[in-house]
Design a protein around this nucleic acid. Structure first.
Lengths: 107, 107
DNA sequence: ACAACAAATCGAGATATATCGATTTAATTT
DNA sequence: AAATTAAATCGATATATCTCGATTTGTTGT
């Protein structure tokens, strides 16, 4: 029996994941090199993908995508790293795994 | 590598699970004998719990709970069985497992 | 200091979800 | 057949989410 110390708010994560675009973003970030153009201001995808590329791919407005990424970050599904003017987002694999394990017990 | 034939609509299930009462109901139905009064019109909980008992426990209106249970049934999280005037709902363990496995791959 | 730009935040209108009471449907009992 | 009852559906209002353009904030380059 495994206990998870950190209280993960399944409800809030579920809310974030009840939108197809946000699910898509999480998926695309699995393989940035397949889903996004090459990076310009950083050498590789190790810190993830910048907001503008994610925005381009979705076709939604800058404010909407920034809002989506902020809420995904707030529930710890994504990790944000700032390099100069740009913010890069990547998956938080630990927390995603934690979420699925929590579901396995709680659902 | 496992492939799931049935196309499970993760988005729709997530929407259903972005409500605390519906999450609670799914949880209570894990152990009906601990969470609900004894059955009256059927011998045991093998077909689940009737709508009125679930309604009592939540304190929400009859129409709201019926609506919730219908939507949980529509995405196959619950199985409905009618006995006379009463409808009994129980967990669809296969589909719940299927959902979590799908998340493990798709998320 | 100032102009330029990426990202975040704000404010607003449109759409969706939550929740109720009233009505309808289906089954049971008299 | 009529009355009763459990559950589902309908119609409506309140609250929340979606999505945008405009503004603000933070960083870089001149």
């Amino acid at each position: 029996m495994l206990y998870y110390i950190c209280t993960m708010d399944v409800l809030e994560v579920n809310k974030v994941l009840s939108n197809q675009v946000r699910i898509d973003i999480l998926n695309w970030l699995k393989k940035p090199e397949e889903n996004f153009p090459p990076q310009v201001n950083v050498p590789d995808f190790s810190d993830g993908v910048c907001v503008c590329h994610i925005q381009d791919k979705t076709g939604l407005s800058q404010s909407t995508i920034s809002h989506y990424l902020t809420m995904m970050h707030r529930v710890d599904l994504l990790i944000a790293t700032r390099h100069g003017k740009w913010t890069y987002y990547r998956r938080n694999e630990n927390e995603i795994r934690n979420y699925i394990n929590t579901l396995k017990n709680d659902l």
